[in-house]
Nucleic acid binder design. Sequence first.
DNA 1: GGTGAAAATTTCGAAGG
DNA 2: CCTTCGAAATTTTCACC
Lengths: 152, 152
Amino acid sequence: MRMDAIDRKILAVLQEDAALSVAEIGSRVGLSSTPCWKRIQKLESEGVIQRRVAIVDQDKVGLGVTVFVSVETGDHSGDWLKKFAAVIGAMPEVQEFYRMAGDVDYMLRVVVPDIAGYDAFYKRMIEAVPLKNVTSRFAMEKIKSTTALPIP
Amino acid sequence: MRMDAIDRKILAVLQEDAALSVAEIGSRVGLSSTPCWKRIQKLESEGVIQRRVAIVDQDKVGLGVTVFVSVETGDHSGDWLKKFAAVIGAMPEVQEFYRMAGDVDYMLRVVVPDIAGYDAFYKRMIEAVPLKNVTSRFAMEKIKSTTALPIP
DNA sequence: GGTGAAAATTTCGAAGG
DNA sequence: CCTTCGAAATTTTCACC
């Protein structure tokens, strides 16, 4: 999809606040509401905007513990990856899940209510698939967290 | 804040799709629109719902490279942390930034257009503050990424 | 804490340059 | 690709249970 500077500006605005009216967004990017609305529709239909979501405060819903998990695996077959991806992806505690280059094979960011919750998650994970090595690193303080991409 | 099962259900719905009408959300959680609207307002004013945002496709805006960065530091003073947090937090490539327990002092998730973009980010970071050790791990494949917390 | 309906806004499409 | 205009839908408020 072809995107100009105005589209990027619209994305920047919507990444900060998706509850604004189309007219307000339009005025911020220098457009009246109809063309602004059409551009937003297009960005959505093309999948540039994937969805609109509410961001919930982790602590206020009792999810005070964030853990970064590095996984090393012996098995690197396609079948194994498929199963691993299905199992881990289905766990709602997993916020992010990447296959990596280098020494670590997978990285996860996991969110749980407490240490006991993490232990329960860990046990479910290692039972589901055979893993060579798992390193869990606990976060002490969230300094920054954003969903707003630095659109070039 | 006191939260009941209906509030949690509302949060679950809004974490998946914040573009739904209040009437639609209400019908999904078994409420008519006014009480549903009041609950949403309260969740927002209490800060349980922090904001509503558009989620943008990383690849479609030319941000194909995700890097997990582990940082070790010699200096652990309050002043140093303050500066480090200010400098790193101001960099738009940084999506997440946590202070950790254990061997790694900080974890970052960084998003850039390409390897050259990462190199530029890396140089800016190590110039801004003195660091003992920095490990960069590159993601090959995003298997899962969600903003929806597993509300207990 | 909930209902239902009126008032205020916003969305979305038509007509036209 | 943009503007103006207006009907339809939605949000938000209000009186009352």
